[in-house]
Design a protein around this nucleic acid. Structure first.
Lengths: 221, 221
DNA sequence: TTGCTTATTGGTCGAGCACTCAATAGCATC
DNA sequence: GATGCTATTGAGTGCTCGACCAATAAGCAA
């Protein structure tokens, strides 16, 4: 009985298989890039035939868009969780900056650059980028509004402040693929410095909070 | 005498042909993207055979890197000319921001996103990106140093200020491919506002100068 | 005019890509 | 145990890409 000549088929429910495909694609998106999401590559990861991927995603572009959405969405949830049951807004922001300053954030920066470029040619992806931009912006805006109410943040416009911080983050992240040597400390801290200034916080407030966070605080859920 | 069956050959000096190829590739890079620089595409633009491009650039990646370098370098020269025979540093900066805020700058933003992403996979391009980053940074630093000397700019570190401005520009440019609706004025002015603050200039100084520039001032040389 | 150098051509190769579709087999239901 | 639905396969199509190379002809030098 030849085992290799005849493939063993594993039959799953459409919902489960689809989720599995998107998860595999999101993993590739985050680690290797959106261009590496090919029918063959994802099929190989899941040990199925390429035709099956086409069955669930008649257009490969749709899978790329979905993969980006899932990857970016999950990262946002890990960096700035939606439910803030404990901890002040300042602590949540500090945790974000602690994570976003580390090397582990490079994958996220790369993903965003990747998506922003590729969306030039892929309308479906472009639409997803817009959705995720809005999600990140709104998540930040909400934290800032909480901080204005409870934590002494001072800003005329929470949403403009959120955008300002995100613009600086994007600008710093732009170098994730080319930066070889370390950058000056003042540059690495540009995002958190901008946040402190724009939120009317004493210089060093957030970065000091970020430094005090333990490994457990930073651990992803 | 069939005219189309037999191609007429135009024989040029290696230096001239090479320059012509790079110029065509740089044009494609700026208008359509670095991925569109293919042997066939450039050959068609120049009305030669693809093999000829391979002859001058045995590795296509080298041509892509060269095209980016030329395109980015020329744009820098157009936006912030090297020789400042007349006009104050503030005027030079104002002219830059006037140009960099307009829609015409979108092609430049797109080029940078493109290069920053693609350099993830292309070492030769990554190296060129580093060179151009340094060139842009140094050009800005020089203008700022001049302004500190002659024009009342105040900053502890011209180079850090230059980096800060460039980071904000990169962050704003990141949306060049996805932004569909206009952004708030305060966001569009983020770069010039950052420059004014970091250079110790009265708020509105540079943007007012930028508004006063005539078409002739903005015209490219 | 003749000859030589080499810029340029034309054709080819293999790899990787998305997409299509009839045939097959897993599995729930009866 | 038989049946029907459909998830999955296998095989194939056509496309674009970079790279390679022997043959050709442009134009300079003698």
């Amino acid at each position: 009985m030849p085992s290799s000549v005849q493939r063993k088929r594993v039959r799953k429910t459409p919902a489960a298989r689809r989720a599995e495909i998107v998860a595999a694609a999101a993993r590739v998106a985050l680690t290797e890039g959106l261009e590496c999401i090919t029918l063959r590559r994802i099929a190989e990861d899941l040990d199925v035939r390429p035709g099956l991927i086409s069955h669930y995603f008649p257009s490969a572009e749709e899978l790329v868009a979905e993969a980006f959405g899932q990857a970016a969405g999950r990262e946002l949830d890990a960096l700035l969780p939606n439910e803030r049951t404990e901890g002040s807004p300042a602590h949540y922001l500090a945790r974000f900056f602690a994570l976003a300053t580390g090397a582990a954030y490079d994958d996220v920066s790369r993903l965003w650059i990747n998506a922003r470029h590729l969306s030039r040619y892929r309308p479906a992806l472009r639409e997803r980028v817009g959705v995720q931009e809005a999600a990140w912006r709104e998540r930040f805006t909400a934290v800032i509004e909480d901080g204005v109410r409870d934590d002494g943040f001072r800003t005329d416009s929470p949403v403009l402040t959120a955008i300002h911080i995100l613009v600086v983050l994007d600008g710093l992240g732009a170098q994730a693929n080319s930066r070889t040597v370390d950058r000056p400390q003042a540059v690495a801290l540009l995002a958190v410095t901008t946040a402190e200034r724009e939120l009317g916080l004493e210089s060093g407030t957030l970065s000091r909070l970020a430094d005090e966070l333990t490994e457990a605080d930073l651990a992803r859920d």
